[in-house]
Design a protein around this nucleic acid. Structure first.
Lengths: 178, 178
DNA sequence: ATTTACGTAAAATATTTATTGTACGAAGTT
DNA sequence: AACTTCGTACAATAAATATTTTACGTAAAT
């Protein structure tokens, strides 16, 4: 209570960084990724691995791992500054963009994985329907599976459209930024 | 290759269930939750803990835990069937609805957590701006923090609107089901 | 040409999360 | 009333993830 104003601001900034970390958690990224994002964000300018290590109290190796993960997720980028030897990392300053980056990179991953499955499954289904002698019960089962496959593919098409809807910024036309 | 048609269908059904599990993973739920969802889905009717235990090869205790998690997430429900003593569990059969349930329950959790933070932070900020003697540097810092707080609150308002946009089904007006 | 600082791979450790086993109360059955 | 069966709390164990330590190749500084 009787703290220095500057100290209190520092405390609030830390709380803020923590909150950002917490928010990140909802995207399924590890706590430390969230923390680092919050720290760089609050620092208001790019940071080196050593600075991050200092700020988190974690090893430099860990910072290296975390920062790589963030770059992969499109929520951080390496910044080149001439004359400076150490790598600098910066984060997206726009919350909405961060949301979109994480959302799209997660779902794109799932969509791509699914592509292979799609091919395999429909090939198998085609084959089985053309080759085999078919009794009634079998036919019913096959038809059910066919129907479900169709629904599944449609669902993934929808997901792909949804990702595009976010990535293009179209979402903001219908859910505008306050 | 020389398998029975019925056996091959079983294999495909299993692959399908697996794929559903995989998809679930993108939402940040545990693998087993995904598996159970896929199994019940493919079973096409509600299942008991014992049946699930049998189907997954896992303990009944684990099934109990998983099913509870699913109910909390709104992707499964307990079904009462008179005359039957065991609890039966069913899952949402509509992929889109499952997507929405998971999306909204995740973000709602985050939004609620944030509510408390909001109050605390803005109270602190108000206090510090009214009580303290202010020099120029301090004032600049405070203003920056105020601005960031505002942005953060706006962002969360947006998230809340987004959740509503999904939950109400409005999303389908703009990204229609194929 | 040596030395120093950097980032990260790879292996080792610590922490967290998932899973099982035991036990027990509540409710149904005999 | 004694006996089963059910679901789950709670403690123990196993598996997966996060984190650190050590080591090493590469590039800048001396």
């Amino acid at each position: 209570m009787d703290e220095q104003p500057l100290g209190r601001i520092k405390v609030m900034e830390d709380q803020f960084a923590e909150k950002i970390a917490d928010n990140m958690h909802t995207y399924g990224v590890s706590t430390t990724v969230g923390r680092v994002l919050g720290i760089i964000y609050m620092n208001r300018k790019p940071m080196t691995l050593d600075e991050l290590s200092e700020a988190t109290g974690m090893s430099k190796t860990r910072m290296s791992q975390v920062v790589r993960e963030m770059v992969d997720l499109n929520i951080a980028e390496k910044v080149l500054q001439k004359g400076v030897r150490k790598d600098l990392y910066n984060v997206e300053q726009d919350y909405y963009q961060t949301f979109i980056s994480l959302f799209t990179s997660n779902w794109r991953k799932a969509i791509n994985k699914n592509k292979m499955f799609e091919k395999k499954l429909s090939a198998e289904l085609k084959e089985i329907t053309s080759n085999e002698p078919i009794d009634e019960e079998l036919e019913a089962k096959i038809n059910l599976l066919l129907k479900e496959t169709k629904e599944w593919l449609d669902y993934y098409q929808w997901l792909a459209n949804l990702v595009e809807f976010f990535e293009s910024g179209e979402i903001f036309k219908h859910v505008p930024k306050p």
